[in-house]
Amino acid sequence: MEARLRVRRFDPESNDGPRYQSYALEVPYYATVLDTLLQIRDEVDGSLALRCSCRSAICGSCAMRINGQARLACKTKILAMAPNGEEVLVEPMGNMPVIKDLVTEMEPFWGKVRAVEPWLQPKGPPPQREYLVPHEAMRHLADVMGCIMCGACLSDCATLETELGLGKAAAQTFLGPAALAKAYRFVGDPRDGADADRLLALSRPEGVWDCTRCYICVEVCPKGVAPLEHILTLRRKAIEAGYEENLGARHTLEFEKTVRESSWL
């Protein structure tokens, strides 16, 4: 079948701004957007820049905006995007600077992940053998660990888009869905002993209360991690831990009080 792509190109070494380039080529019916982009690079235009590696949705390299939404190119079939041979729009991820074509600057993303101290902080020395923990707890965390750090959620995060639009420096913006899901992965781990410190840190500005619950991260996550759910759990745990001295928590508690006292919202 014929695949038609419209790709946003940008060459930092030329004086031109971004431009859109259309391609049409013959691909097998099962071709993904990644297969097609690689075929373009091999057969048509060797200068097309994109990151990719595993082709099986596990390495997290090839997130990009396809038809306006962040997706993994390797997990997105041409046929699903263009059942009637329509042109498929391919652009780099949003909310981060573009370096070349579909390659974006990922450092803002990694900076946010590093900010949540993403390593296990157990209380006391490790046991002689493995920690004895329930299977259900590990199985639940394995789903959260399923996050491949592709950046799709941050690309389409409405909170971040608004903050960047207001001119905030990237380092002072919302931590974002992936980093908070990563933080939850430790708060939810029975082996981690730093819950109190973590929840305190996450209750500060740029933390869990900055989320507008727009649900986009759940929709775009290619691995079903559902970051929003974990953000909401972190909020609940933060209040339970007594971290109420912030706008978000006070707002929530006030709502609760109003409903409790007057049955009105």
């Binding site: 390593w119 296990l120 157990p122 490790p126 046991p127 053998r129 493995e130 920690y131 004895l132 923990v133 329930p134 299977h135 590990m138 199985r139 965390l141 394995a142 660990m145 430790f186 781990d189 082996r191 981690d192």
Partner: peptide
């Protein structure tokens, strides 16, 4: 011990 979420047996091992 570093945090891998290995699947467990009933007794937690």
């Amino acid at each position: 011990n570093l945090g891998t979420v290995f699947s467990r047996r009933e007794d937690g091992r």
